[in-house]
Design a protein around this nucleic acid. Structure first.
Lengths: 214, 214
DNA sequence: CCGGTATTAGAGAGGGCTCTCTAATACGAG
DNA sequence: CTCGTATTAGAGAGCCCTCTCTAATACCGG
């Protein structure tokens, strides 16, 4: 009962991902996406309310894809420590498998114009974040680490540290070396060991392995 | 023997830093910098060959300021391990003291149009990098870690890990919590402990490296 | 006081980007 | 076959940005 679409949403977002990976968020202009996808600008504006909306969609689709896989990995392990190690590895593995989307994610929502997003897009982003941080919170609880600083360290070990390895290698057009997963898992494990063990243990400063040399 | 300048280079770059911190590299337009500094666009083009040159200058001035202080900290310690811990702390301390410049540095040279830089600017960037990586290389050598992967781990501990803590907190307009230095030093120390000790010693951990599992 | 010069000052051409608007088009239901 | 509709198609207004160009300006040595 209507003309069939030649350019669906995903196709256009794919083009946007390629542009973002190559030229950064600033390179994702309506004109550039249209050209990259071979579509007229009218088709773009037919699907997205404007540039903000397109930026929001491309960011959210990408980050949600990553978060889905990340949550799946976390859920696939019973032992908390093992789940953590697998999650850290997974960040690298996913990045290796999706280099363009990763380059996009190395920016932040702010670079994709979060300020100008609709309420709907904002809360979609919020939901995704809460989901992952919820998982990390409960993982921290399982590990007996309940205060803010401990959750922060867990996040550092399972998200930020892997991401910084990925960032260093992918920035300026490089690729991930073969040993990246191993380095990340190893380092994440070391960081997990700085967490206070369960049982209300005092902070790992003076007792643990970290500060013996002071 | 000439009209005295009302707007010197540093003043204009200061304005560019503020804009980059608030709006990202894309917000650093010649028009915006002129307005922010209260200068006419003519003055801008009088000092910078064009937008690329201004972006290069603002990036290089900022990164060199950071690198200077970083190198100074590394040189201030005799013990390699202590130097490493101090360096990691310093990344956080410097970021706390210079939040706007830090927000700028959380982007990369690529975001500041490195492709379009003059040869002079490129080699200035190259020189700065070589300087720091040279220091890190010799630090690694002192610690008895000579292969690429070991240097990579050292970089991770002394640069990337502190930066990722800074990034998480400064992104989206936050500030660094009081305990950030402590967390970073603690985690950096843990990572330093994963380095192979001099003499080919295996690391004192869970009995082997993660890589063995492959 | 005067000429030389570095700088300020800002108008305006040219280009790209966002977004709007109108017309053409292709399909499916009846 | 015809009508209704979702979509394609792209021209063009308006805006901002980069960069150029010309004129005015303020200091300084002599």
């Amino acid at each position: 009962m209507a003309r069939p679409p030649r350019f669906d949403t995903d196709q256009l977002l794919d083009a946007a991902v390629r542009l973002a990976a190559s030229f950064g968020p600033a390179g994702v202009t309506m004109a550039a996406v249209a050209k990259e996808a071979g579509a007229p600008s009218g088709s773009l504006y037919h699907r997205f309310a404007g540039r903000s909306a397109l930026l929001a969609e491309v960011w959210l689709r990408t980050v949600e894809r990553f978060q889905d896989s990340y949550a799946r990995v976390l859920a696939a392990h019973d032992d908390a420590r093992e789940a953590g190690r697998a999650a850290a590895r997974h960040v690298v593995a996913w990045s290796r498998a999706h280099p363009e989307e990763t380059r996009l994610l190395l920016y932040g929502p702010g670079d994709f114009g979060r300020e100008g997003w609709s309420q709907e897009h904002r809360s979609r982003a919020e939901r995704g974040n809460r989901r992952i941080f919820g998982e990390l919170d409960s993982l921290a609880a399982t590990l007996g680490a309940r205060d803010t600083e401990a959750v922060e360290r867990l996040t550092l070990a399972l998200v930020d540290l892997p991401l910084s390895v990925v960032r260093r290698h992918l920035r300026e057009g490089g690729t991930l070396p073969a040993h990246a997963e191993a380095v990340v898992e190893d380092c994440a494990t070391a960081l997990l060991d700085t967490l206070p063990r369960s049982g209300g243990h005092v902070r790992p400063g003076s007792g643990g392995r970290a500060r013996n040399r002071d």
